[in-house]
Measured scan of single mutants.
Amino acid sequence: KELVLVLYDYQEKSPREVTVKKGDILTLLNSTNKDAWKVEVDDRQGFIPAAYLKKL
């Protein structure tokens, strides 16, 4: 599985998104959309803007 590093805090703005903190390391589920990547956070799945993430 692929991991990503969170570069900036992000507060979810819709039910399809998830809230993350800078420095979190998350499982990347889908990065086919260049604008928003799907990740898993504490058994929740949701989207975060790709600009907030860096592949490890």
Rank of each mutant, 00 (worst) to 15 (best):
D24Q: 15
V6D: 01
Y8D: 11
T19Y: 03
E40G: 08
L56G: 01
L5R: 06
K21Q: 08
Y8I: 09
L28P: 00
K55C: 11
K22H: 06
K54M: 12
W37Y: 06
D42V: 09
S31N: 07
K13Q: 13
P49S: 04
L5V: 10
K34Y: 10
L53H: 02
T27G: 07
S31R: 05
E40A: 12
E17L: 05
K38E: 15
V4M: 00
N33K: 07
V41K: 14
G23E: 01
K54W: 08
D35C: 14
D24N: 08
I25G: 01
T27D: 04
N33S: 11
D35M: 12
Y52W: 07
D9R: 01
D35N: 12
V39P: 01
N33L: 09
D35K: 12
N30M: 08
S31G: 10
D43R: 09
L7H: 01
N33Y: 10
L29K: 03
I25L: 06
G46F: 15
I25K: 04
R16G: 15
V41E: 02
N33C: 13
K22E: 06
Q11F: 15
L29I: 14
N33A: 10
N33E: 11
L7E: 02
E12Q: 14
T32W: 09
E12D: 06
V6T: 02
D9T: 04
E40Y: 06
L29V: 11
D43E: 11
K13S: 10
Q45L: 07
F47D: 06
R44T: 07
D35I: 11
V4A: 07
E17Y: 07
K21E: 04
N30D: 15
A36S: 14
L53T: 01
K55M: 10
K55L: 13
L5F: 07
K55V: 12
T27E: 07
L53C: 11
K13G: 08
K21V: 06
V20A: 13
N30F: 05
K22V: 06
P15R: 09
L56C: 14
S14G: 12
L5M: 10
T32G: 10
Q45P: 07
K21F: 09
R44G: 07
L56W: 07
Y10A: 01
N33M: 09
Q11A: 13
S14P: 07
E12A: 15
L56K: 02
L56M: 10
D42G: 15
L26A: 07
E12K: 14
K34D: 13
D43A: 10
V39M: 02
F47S: 05
F47Y: 15
P49F: 06
E2I: 14
A50M: 06
I48K: 00
Y8R: 14
S14I: 05
V41W: 08
V18R: 02
Y52T: 06
V20Y: 08
T19I: 05
G46K: 05
K1F: 12
W37G: 00
P49A: 04
R16A: 14
T27R: 13
V20P: 02
D9V: 03
L26R: 02
D24S: 10
T27M: 10
K34S: 13
R16T: 14
L3T: 08
K34G: 10
K1D: 07
K54E: 14
E17Q: 08
K1S: 10
K22C: 08
E12H: 09
V39T: 00
L29G: 01
A51F: 13
D9Q: 03
D24W: 14
V18H: 03
E2G: 11
F47P: 01
W37F: 04
N33D: 13
T27W: 12
E17M: 06
D24Y: 07
P49K: 05
Y52K: 06
A50Y: 03
L7D: 02
D43P: 03
K13R: 13
L3K: 11
L56F: 08
K1N: 10
V6H: 00
T32F: 10
A36N: 12
K21H: 11
L28N: 01
D43C: 13
Q45T: 13
K22S: 08
V18K: 02
S31L: 04
D43W: 06
K54A: 11
A50T: 09
A51P: 08
V4D: 00
S14H: 12
K34R: 11
A50P: 14
T32L: 10
A36M: 15
L7S: 01
E12P: 13
Q11G: 07
K13P: 06
D35R: 11
V6C: 05
R44E: 05
G23P: 00
K21C: 11
P49H: 04
S31F: 06
E2L: 13
V18W: 08
E40N: 05
V6G: 00
K21M: 08
I25E: 01
K34P: 15
Q45R: 09
A51G: 13
K21W: 07
N30S: 13
Y10N: 02
G23W: 04
R16N: 15
L28R: 00
V20E: 02
K21G: 04
V6M: 02
K21R: 13
V41D: 05
A51Q: 13
V20H: 02
N33G: 10
D35T: 11
A50S: 14
L28K: 01
G23N: 06
L3C: 14
E12S: 15
V18L: 14
T19L: 04
T32I: 09
G23K: 01
E17I: 04
L3R: 11
T19P: 03
D24L: 08
K34Q: 12
N30C: 13
G23L: 03
D42N: 14
E2S: 12
I48A: 05
K55F: 08
T19A: 05
E17H: 09
L56N: 00
N33P: 06
L7N: 02
D42R: 12
N30I: 08
V18P: 02
V6W: 01
N33H: 10
F47K: 02
I48N: 01
K38L: 15
Y10K: 00
P15G: 11
V39H: 01
D43Y: 08
D35H: 14
Y52P: 03
N30V: 08
V41G: 06
W37V: 03
A50V: 11
L53V: 09
D9A: 05
R44K: 11
D9F: 03
G46Y: 15
E12V: 09
L53M: 04
R16I: 13
Y10H: 04
R44Y: 08
R44A: 05
K21I: 06
K38P: 00
T19H: 05
T32R: 10
W37P: 00
V18S: 02
L5N: 00
A50W: 03
K54N: 05
F47N: 04
L7C: 08
P15T: 09
L56T: 05
E12N: 07
Y52M: 10
E2A: 11
Y10T: 01
V18E: 01
K38G: 04
L29F: 03
F47G: 02
P15S: 12
Q11N: 13
Y8L: 10
L29D: 00
S31Y: 07
L5A: 04
T19W: 04
K54C: 15
R44W: 15
W37K: 00
T32S: 14
W37D: 01
I48T: 02
W37T: 01
T27Q: 10
P49I: 06
S31Q: 08
T32K: 11
Y52V: 13
A36E: 15
L26E: 00
L56I: 14
Q45A: 11
Q45V: 15
V39N: 00
P15D: 12
L53P: 04
D9L: 03
E40M: 14
V20K: 00
T27A: 08
L5G: 00
Y10S: 01
Q45W: 10
L28W: 01
K21S: 09
D24A: 11
N33I: 06
E12L: 13
Q45E: 12
D42Q: 12
K21D: 02
L28S: 01
K13C: 09
L56R: 00
A51H: 14
L3N: 04
T32E: 14
G46E: 09
F47M: 08
F47Q: 04
V39E: 00
D24R: 09
I25D: 00
S31I: 05
